[in-house]
């Protein structure tokens, strides 16, 4: 299985979980020095570059075999209010978070369809459902993943490839560590379960969607957000 952006945060927690349950796991990281702390196979990959994606997946295939489970998780933020957001801030976030997901899924799905079995899970976000002031680019990219995933779900349903999304709320990761204490406190207050989520809790949801048991679940968005997006 392959996890993009797996050297930290939700991606790393997902890699650890799958590795612990016997999967052969590879993660991608943008820079070669971004090694995950544990003994996890890492390949260098820039998801904004199709050639880099192709090379990375080929390397994984040569080392571990064909990718049967893809967790498309690589993402960046470039926060700012719309009036202050440069076009490049918008398009670069889209290129990584949304188009990057497309590039990787396109590369691995061919083998899945040939095998008549595959699992793709996109890591979206609660802000893709509800929007977020200061994150127009990020929210647009995460909402876009829903349309991408559901279209893939329909295109490849006949080949027994399921495609789903998880939509994490505020999770204790580096991405959130970049915010101020006041911002984090405000987020926690907005969550009905009144705390931040743990990366492992998102990994558990991903593990379910990637499991054999989830074979009748496709095109769904599974929120892991402490109830934030309800209603």
């Amino acid at each position: 299985m392959l996890i993009t952006g797996g050297n930290r945060g939700i991606g790393l927690a997902t890699a650890e979980r799958f590795q612990a349950t016997g999967y052969r796991v590879a993660v991608t990281a943008r820079a070669p020095q971004d090694k995950p702390p544990k003994d996890i196979c890492v390949v260098q990959c820039d998801v904004t570059d199709s050639v880099s994606v192709d090379n990375a997946v080929s390397e994984v295939e040569a080392t571990l075999g064909a990718v049967e489970v893809l967790v498309s998780n690589a993402g960046i933020t470039r926060d700012g209010l719309v009036l202050r957001m440069r076009d490049a801030d918008f398009t670069e976030v889209l290129d990584t978070n949304l188009t990057g997901g497309f590039r990787v899924a396109k590369r691995v799905v061919k083998n899945m369809m040939r095998k008549r079995w595959g699992r793709i899970v996109f890591v979206s976000s609660v802000v893709g459902l509800g929007g977020q002031a200061g994150q127009a680019n990020y929210a647009a990219s995460k909402a876009g993943l829903t349309g991408l995933a559901r279209s893939l779900a329909k295109e490849f349903a006949a080949r027994n490839v399921t495609v789903n999304l998880v939509a994490p709320g505020p999770i204790e990761t580096d991405m959130l560590a970049a915010l101020s204490d006041a911002q984090r406190a405000a987020m926690t207050d907005a969550v009905p379960l009144a705390r931040l989520g743990k990366p492992a809790e998102v990994a558990a949801a991903i593990a379910y969607l990637a499991s054999e048991e989830a074979g009748f679940v496709t095109g769904t968005v599974l929120a892991v957000d402490g109830g934030l997006a309800m209603g």
Binding site: K110, M113, R114, E155, F156, A158, R159
Partner: peptide, 11 residues
């Protein structure tokens, strides 16, 4: 052969 098969064959 469905439309996906055809696309795969062409590739």
């Amino acid at each position: 052969a469905d439309s996906l098969d055809l696309v795969e064959l062409v590739m």
